[in-house]
Amino acid sequence: MTLTATLLPGLSKRRYGSMFSTVGWAAVVVALTVVLLSVLAPFIAPYDPNYVDLENVLSGPSLAHWLGTDAMGRDLLSRLMFGGRTSLVGPLIVVVASTIFGLLLGLAAGWSDGWISALLSRIFDLVFAFPALLLSMLAIALFGKGLVAPIIAMTISYIPYVARLTQQLVISERSRPYVQAYRVLGFRTSWVVLGRVLPNLVPTVGAQSTLNFGYVLADLAALSFIGLGIQPPTSDWGAMIEEARGALLSGSLMPALLPALVVVLIVVSINVIGEELSDRIGGNLS
């Protein structure tokens, strides 16, 4: 039972043969729109995101500035679009890297018996014990602000999520008759694991990674918000919220609300997609 199924029972039923429910398709549309707007920002953004126009500070939505301007007169729509580029690239790198390493470590932990499996499992436990944000701040303290240190730290923190899942899947998969048939047929273990078992896990692990994307995005935005992530003037959703705190106090909602809204929208969309994917795969596998 997913969250959306509880909140919107009618719209979250998947029709036979359809990939997603109505809610799921809406999430896909939202996510794709955000991604496209960010990717195409240099071509379609109405303004330079860093162009300061002090005669036009904190203006509300108008024909010239569809979503208004911030405290330095920068166009909010353009900043949001460009902000997506940094805000989405970070999670993407983290998710891809943690998925690759998580899969490999999970396979090793699931397939081996004895001390390798035990050692890897304890390491996963250890990393699980550190919140991703805390680890990132530690990395920033050591290596300095910016995107590189938190991305590495986040990758390390998210590896166990993928690895633990992979490990469990591998353990159940290796006792299945089809895997045993490969063994009896004399195929090499490495061929069976990498060539046959691994591809069967990809959909399930992919669904988990999709969910992770949302969490990482929120975490990185939080880092930028507290000033440890992306540094001004580069636009980033988390950093935009932080910069808009002053404006918030003087009564202008938009500069802080808009990036927050985008973060919420994208995280919710990604979570819905991830949940529906894993539901679908869970249903197909069992």
Partner: peptide, 27 residues
Amino acid sequence: KAGERKLLAKDVQIVFQDPYLSLDPRI
């Protein structure tokens, strides 16, 4: 070991009970 298993495979093979589980679903 891998080599021994391959050699044994030419001598003896097995067919399992449940044909729904004994074939790789993706291949």
